[in-house]
């Protein structure tokens, strides 16, 4: 029903490490049984040290993300200092709560928020992940990873077996791409690596050096690694 109304963005995963966080998203948007976009980008930097990924109604989500980026930057310029990571997450929760009316009419959007915490006291706690519900509930994920969107069940199942503490950023990125592969394998609304059109997941990191998007060549290589491994052991 309302899935046919407007394009839907699908699976996002985030993994925290000792150096920061990795967030990755597939490239598909769907409208009912149709593919609305093959190359949508659902993971973006919210500010120089945090990342936001969106699932749900794409139009509402992208607008929410844009407004969030403006608010963070505006605050930083007016006050001369960045909001704390918790402050940013709380602000995002309020913005989602304000969308509750539209969400009840079928235009729901749920983001995933993760970032490098500049005020972290313990070294292992620099990368933090926050999830939300449509009522504006804010939940910090202490397990080290999280996923949202239609394929999140499969992505999380994949991470549950493979995630371990003390991962490096590069290992975590590889793991995120693999989790998206698993999501795409079992969820029709999640796009897998498109080797024909050379469209691969968007993978971003937030570390002490700030946010960074992995190049297409890097994500292509990661996707090829997963594909090669799965070719040997495809599963049923």
């Amino acid at each position: 029903m309302n899935a046919d109304l407007a394009p839907h963005a699908t699976t996002i995963v985030a993994i925290s490490t000792n150096e920061g966080v990795v967030m990755a998203g597939d490239r598909r948007a769907t409208m009912g049984n149709l593919i609305a976009s093959r190359d949508i980008e659902k993971v973006h930097p919210a500010d120089p040290y945090s990342l936001i990924g969106i699932a749900g109604t794409a139009g509402v989500g992208i607008e929410l993300m844009r407004l969030f980026q403006v608010e963070l930057q505006h605050y930083e310029k007016i006050e001369g200092a960045m909001l704390s990571l918790d402050g940013k997450a709380n602000r995002l929760a309020t913005m989602i709560r304000q969308n509750l009316g539209a969400a009840m009419q079928g235009l729901a959007v749920i983001p995933l928020f993760a970032g490098f915490d500049l005020d972290a006291k313990t070294p292992g706690k620099v990368g933090r992940i926050f999830s939300f519900d449509i009522a504006g509930g804010l939940y910090e994920e202490h397990g080290g990873y999280d996923a949202i969107g239609s394929g999140s069940l499969f992505a999380k199942s994949s991470l549950k077996k493979r995630y371990k503490q003390g991962l490096g950023i590069a290992e975590a990125a590889q793991l995120a791409v693999e989790a998206l592969f698993d999501a795409a394998d079992d969820d029709t609304a999640t796009g897998g690596p498109d080797v024909i059109r050379k469209i691969f997941p968007v993978v971003m990191t937030a570390t002490a050096e700030g946010t960074q998007r992995l190049t297409d060549d890097e994500t292509a290589a990661m996707a090829q690694t997963v594909i090669a491994a799965r070719a040997l052991q495809p599963g049923a």
Binding site: R66, L67, V70, Q73, H74, K77, I78
Partner: peptide, 13 residues
């Protein structure tokens, strides 16, 4: 300065 930042951010958005 505040008015300038506000105007610029609003326009850019």
């Amino acid at each position: 300065r505040n008015a300038g930042v506000r105007m610029a951010d609003l326009r850019g958005y």
